[in-house]
Computed example of a mutant assay.
Amino acid sequence: MGKVCTKFRRILHIDTIWRRRCREEFGVCENLQDLETVGTSYREVYAKLLHPHRHILGLWQLDTKGLKTLLYVAVDGLGITGWTYVPCLNTHVDGPMQFKPAFRIRLTETKSAVVECMEGRHRRPHCRHLRIRKDRLTSQCKKTDHLKDSPTRLREEFGTALFLDDTLRYHCRTYRRLYLPFHGKCARLKQITGITFHILQIHLTRRIETRGGEIFGDVDELSRVVREMGEQVLREQQQQQEDGTEDSEGHGGEMCFYGVETGTLDGSVWHSPGVVILFDENHLGFIDPEFKSFFLFGRVQNTFQNVEAASPQAFPEMIKNIHPDHVYHP
């Protein structure tokens, strides 16, 4: 438009237009003081920083065997910051996730965008290279002091679980994009960080009568109920495949459901049927009668932007690409 005529060119240099675009598209807050400090304009921030790097915003998962960590990339003031997220160790289930900056994209005095690595032993910003191909993000840094991080500092920052992964290197990492799931009749809880991989599939249409809580005092009786419900679910699934029908909707009221935990570690897969207990909107538990174990889950309270799937098909396709198909069909 700026090449059409002089008037259009003047209009496109009105900074309030670009300030609105930065705010509505990327959530940039008013910060005129920072603009004056950097000596730039909202037009330059939009055209040279935000718009060219819009595809990097969102949530990413480290694509490697072993430990899985998250990378959250978001607009941060007049820049873009990538944050490494890991679960907090030795804290209450409601504790927030632990995070630290991995890199930052900012405008220089010459009005060009640069990627600064913020990891390493000395924490001095230095150059980092980012590359996106479809759903993959590659981060590469050639600074060698990343490989000299002491085991003590790593344990202090992220805990001993992270230290177990010998693939922890900052100089080159590849991530897969993650989307928040769409909701359906069968809820799935998926572990996306850590060394092992777990899925808890909750059959929302399969309520379990608790008999006032008495059933939880008899493990044998609880195992029998879970086993019978599992056989019933299997029969109905086979019938639905033959008839081409779907599950009927549940009728609410009860807080316990039939569920199946699927886990993988080093290529091995196991399935454990059990009971899912919904305590409130932020907490649920899983009882595994076979191993006589109980797991408590808390909802992550962190807020992530730009993590919605582009379509209802995008989320299942993403999950299919990340993990083997056989994990999702117990």
Rank of each mutant, 00 (worst) to 15 (best):
Leu62Thr: 03
Leu284Trp: 03
Lys148Asn: 11
Leu70Gln: 01
Arg133Pro: 01
Asp266Gly: 12
Ser248Tyr: 04
Cys117Asp: 09
His13Asp: 14
Arg124Pro: 03
Ala310Arg: 08
Thr37Ile: 14
Leu234His: 05
Asp325Trp: 09
Asp63Lys: 09
Cys88Asp: 09
Arg176Gln: 11
Val226Phe: 00
Gly244Pro: 04
Cys29Tyr: 10
Pro312Cys: 05
Gly184Ile: 00
Glu246Ser: 12
Cys22His: 05
Val115Ile: 15
Tyr72Gln: 05
Asn306Thr: 08
Leu32Asn: 13
Leu12Asn: 12
Gly212Thr: 05
Phe291Glu: 15
Gly95Trp: 08
Asp76Cys: 11
Thr69Cys: 13
Arg133Phe: 07
Gly58Phe: 01
Gly259Lys: 00
Lys111Thr: 14
Phe294Met: 02
Cys127Tyr: 14
Phe197Asp: 08
Arg131Gly: 04
Glu214Asp: 14
Gln238Lys: 06
Glu281Trp: 02
Gly159His: 05
His171Asp: 12
Leu234Tyr: 04
Val307Trp: 04
Glu228Tyr: 07
Met97Val: 08
Glu281Cys: 03
His251Glu: 14
Gln61Asp: 04
Phe295Ala: 01
Asn31Ile: 07
Leu12Glu: 13
Ile80Pro: 00
Thr210Phe: 05
Leu49Asp: 03
Lys190Met: 06
Gln301His: 12
Asp247Leu: 13
Glu236Trp: 00
Arg133Leu: 08
His53Trp: 14
Phe163Cys: 11
Asp15Arg: 01
Asp247Ile: 09
Tyr258Ile: 02
Met318Ile: 04
Thr6Tyr: 14
Phe297Glu: 01
Leu154Ile: 15
Lys100Thr: 11
Ile192Trp: 01
Lys3Val: 15
Leu50Tyr: 10
Cys5Asn: 15
Val219Ser: 12
Arg299Trp: 01
Asp165His: 06
Lys142Arg: 10
Leu147Tyr: 10
Ser293Glu: 09
Trp270Asp: 13
Arg23Thr: 13
Ile202Arg: 02
Gly253Ala: 09
Arg155Met: 12
Tyr85Glu: 01
Leu50His: 03
Glu228Gln: 14
Leu70Ser: 02
Arg169Cys: 15
